[in-house]
Design a protein around this nucleic acid. Structure first.
Lengths: 338, 338
DNA sequence: TGCTGGCACTCGAACGCACAGAGTGCCAGG
DNA sequence: CCTGGCACTCTGTGCGTTCGAGTGCCAGCA
């Protein structure tokens, strides 16, 4: 096991490297941190840390930099989550309070996260499957054409056109609307399928086709939208990476353009609590030199979606985690209010 | 005026520079292009072109590169629009035909343009103000809460919640819905305001407040949505720029994140025909080293929105223009069909 | 008048080299 | 187990040299 002091040395290395972006040597370490020991001792500790794989040297006779494994240890055992300052908190609240609809909430959240962390922000739209139904509406656009509108408790609205197999009367429509709503309002989307399963049977034979069509469209909507949408921002922050640019930044930009990749990324995160994936822990190759900090957020106690940031493995983990967590909380509040 | 041959020299310089990304000298020019004259003559021509401001040398004793003014001349007088090959055309058609809804059309268009031009693609959503109304729907969510849904002929759907000053009966609601639709269906959004202006007067005094509220929400929606939405993609292509990265790419990424900037950018483009803005012709400073090729597209004969690409001033103008034009045409077709 | 070949000149990129400085590993002594 | 000292190894930097592409200019030729 690593001694207390060696952990302290690792912490110091991580902190310095994150700050300076340069390999850190033993002398500089003892000068900047009150370790109470001489450079020579630190060197010995470093040799051990290197042997264990927590740090590495880019070249012989250069300082050390943390490895992914080193960051892992740092995050797990050495770093707390740095709470935001109260001005920052106020700023978040003010900024998010101005939002007018769900799109706006998401857009503002992305900007906020990107600014706060100075990294790339990713925010998933609230998931339908975990939301509850606020209202289902059916409109008749033409004799055999309906529009289905779905409103969630998170303020999301989805609509679909439905072409009916047969004309559908206004009374039947009102009937279907009423029965549908009485069954599903306030229920979770995930439960909807079984709740409406037997609905067609209670209608007149000539209407059953249409009712089935409407229901299958409804269910389709649920399934389709399980593939979540998301919004990203702050890609300009990628330019702060290093000076070894094109090679580093390119695959990241490519990965960020693939929504599928990002969704998988967020999907892999733990259901509750904050998740930090460091470097090669990310399945996607293009993101091997980045870390992803993500967390779930939701209107109630339960998470309905996730958000996070993508940045270099050399990032300020405590600060980033603090910002991510705080933003997630406030967004949750905002969603609960609306 | 510049002689025919000097124009030919300029064309050759542009073509070579676009291809090699390196300043081009007189000797290389005569070798690669059948100009029929010696390097010395070309040098004289170059001196003239430089004096006129069409080309410049990065340093004394280096080859020449085109200036913005040089590209301008090239685009205006020397370059045609290169039509796409038929496999390319088929690919476009196939790719766009798979789209299921408006979002999907826009998303696919962005990907397509980015791939085809290997640059950053920007696609504006069809504008509401130039669209026509397909249907307006009003739903009662609660006694004093309505939902307003707007459907356009381009398949776009907008919804807004309306809090009424007083409860609003079902019959009044049906009445308002009917009158509203009879007035605005099939009309252009731009004409809506005056068409509904006198509507409140024809209602009972106790309902007028609500009617006015609904109408003002409707008008607000129109105004708000005049600030169009747009989608961008292919930012990873920015990494192909040059090797002088961070400085070049950063402001561009920043500009691309500001939707307002992009909308203004597209807005400045000509109403009809293709627009090419080169380097400093772009008002936004961050885009001074890029060129923007944009064109309107629409479901009918008229343009309802614009799309385009952003790339380095050193771009393949004929090819890019060809791709942009072709994509715009096919998107127009798709929208018209749906 | 306009094109051409020749020539001297300029200047940036590439290379080699020496040097300073930071950092290391190791060892002997407290 | 820590420390100071020491020899060693690199990288980064500055400097001078060379190399070559490219230019401008000029005299000659059609």
């Amino acid at each position: 096991m690593l001694s207390e002091r060696r952990l302290e040395v690792l912490r110091a290395i991580v902190q310095d490297y994150v700050g300076t972006e340069e390999p850190v040597g033993s002398k500089a370490l003892t000068e900047r941190h009150a370790l109470g020991v001489s450079p020579a001792t630190v060197r010995n500790d470093m040799a051990v840390l290197e042997e264990e794989g927590f740090i590495a040297q880019p070249h012989t006779s250069a300082g050390r930099i943390p490895t992914d494994k080193g960051y892992r240890l740092f995050v797990d055992r050495l770093a707390g989550v740095k709470p935001l300052s109260s001005p920052e908190r106020r700023a978040i609240q003010n900024f998010l309070d101005g939002a007018v609809d769900l799109d706006d909430v998401v857009a503002r959240t992305v900007r906020l996260l990107a600014q706060l962390t100075r990294q790339v922000a990713v925010v998933q739209y609230p998931s339908l499957t975990r939301s509850t139904v606020r209202h289902v509406e059916l409109l008749s656009l033409a004799p055999a054409r309906l529009m289905l509108v779905l409103i969630t408790d998170t303020g999301r609205v989805e609509q679909r056109l439905v072409d009916c197999p047969a004309p559908f009367g206004e009374t039947s429509l009102a009937d279907l609307r009423a029965r549908l709503n009485s069954r599903v309002v306030g229920r979770r989307f995930a439960d909807v399928p079984q709740l409406v399963q037997d609905l067609p049977e209670s209608f007149e034979p000539e209407d059953r086709g249409t009712v089935s069509t409407v229901l299958s469209t409804l269910l389709e909507t649920l399934v389709e939208e399980t593939e979540e949408r998301l919004m990203i921002g702050g890609t300009a922050n990628l330019t702060r990476f290093g000076h070894d640019f094109p090679l580093t930044i390119r695959p990241v930009l490519e990965a960020l353009e693939e929504q599928v990749v990002l969704l998988k990324l967020l999907g892999e995160a733990k259901e509750s609590g904050m998740t930090v994936r460091i470097g090669h822990e990310n399945a996607h190759e293009g993101l091997n030199s980045t870390s992803v900090v993500s967390v779930g957020y939701g209107s109630g106690g339960e998470a309905v979606a996730k958000l996070g940031v993508v940045g270099p493995t050399r990032m300020d983990y405590p600060g980033t985690m603090g910002a991510v967590r705080a933003v997630a909380r406030y967004v949750g509040q905002i969603l609960a209010e609306s």
